[in-house]
Design a protein around this nucleic acid. Sequence first.
DNA 1: CCATAACGATCAAAGCTTTGATTACTCAGG
DNA 2: CCTGAGTAATCAAAGCTTTGATCGTTATGG
Lengths: 179, 179
Amino acid sequence: MTAEPAGPDELDYLSFVEYAVKKTSTRLPAIDAEAMRLVLTLHRVTSALVYDLESAVHRPRGLSWPGFRVLFVLWLTGPMESKRVAELSGMSRAAVSALVNTLERDGLVSRRQADHDRRAVLLSLTDAGRETITNDYRAHNEREQAWAGTLSEAERRTLIGLLEKLMAGSAAAEAKRRF
Amino acid sequence: MTAEPAGPDELDYLSFVEYAVKKTSTRLPAIDAEAMRLVLTLHRVTSALVYDLESAVHRPRGLSWPGFRVLFVLWLTGPMESKRVAELSGMSRAAVSALVNTLERDGLVSRRQADHDRRAVLLSLTDAGRETITNDYRAHNEREQAWAGTLSEAERRTLIGLLEKLMAGSAAAEAKRRF
DNA sequence: CCATAACGATCAAAGCTTTGATTACTCAGG
DNA sequence: CCTGAGTAATCAAAGCTTTGATCGTTATGG
């Protein structure tokens, strides 16, 4: 058998989930082990995925992951208020403001004052920004395909459906939202 | 009908995924829309979940999300080398080092030199640290249950299985790993 | 035995994040 | 009008992240 109840010394990032669930269950019997396993696994898969995309696709092309997210939104929607970009990219307004300092310095995004409201700032892609995000997204999607390719067509649909259900659920609705 | 093909102005964090997939598909027909939808959804769900856990559970108790992860590992494994904590918590060694400065200052973790290797640093929970993480994790798990409760028992198992498959897949294996 | 490579932790610089001011502007009621 | 509430962006302080350099310790091959 290869599946021994690994002690702390043989653990790695993957097997840690199983170890954590077992250990916690004996220590605090009242906890819900299945919920624990779900959240731990979800977090670890997503972290690995984002780390891979950022380090393999975006950083080599001069973008950070947050920078990519902002360019992506602007690429799809066209010029848009800073506030809306924050909402759609899932960042705070302050974070967008700070991030756009970098993107503007790098010549990828430009700021301009909105006509209808002088408090608002309109963000748009520069030509260089559009060029960057177009190529960057192509590479991004290739890498996405490599990940998604592990699952069958049916499995992918199932997974997406379950994630959407989770997102639409009551806990998500109650959640203190920034979005 | 409520499902109109929302333009950029009616979008929110949720409906953005659908909008992005449609728009990108017409613009770059070569991309794999299903892979795109999977990665976007996975990232958005996980971000919302982590944001909720951090803001509703951990921050109010004086822990950051990364701080929680480190305490959690030490709580389960017992005293452990800094390098191993980094591997199991999915952070770089430098990040652990910086983070432990804060945790040590707050009296939750203590550092000591390893006997067998004078380069290595052994991290352990203080009594206050153990107390903190025990209570913190109980609240964390309650919130996890609220999220997981959206899905049926069978759906939870299916979702966990698919996430594990994704994690075990070839793309994950190729991925430039920090872990 | 020793030179050199490998390794563990930390530091340094740059970037992104958060919350909580602050500043500038808009809007509605009196 | 014009005052006060609300809103958009930015700033400030503190924290976490990354990569790459440095320093000390350990392991190894000649």
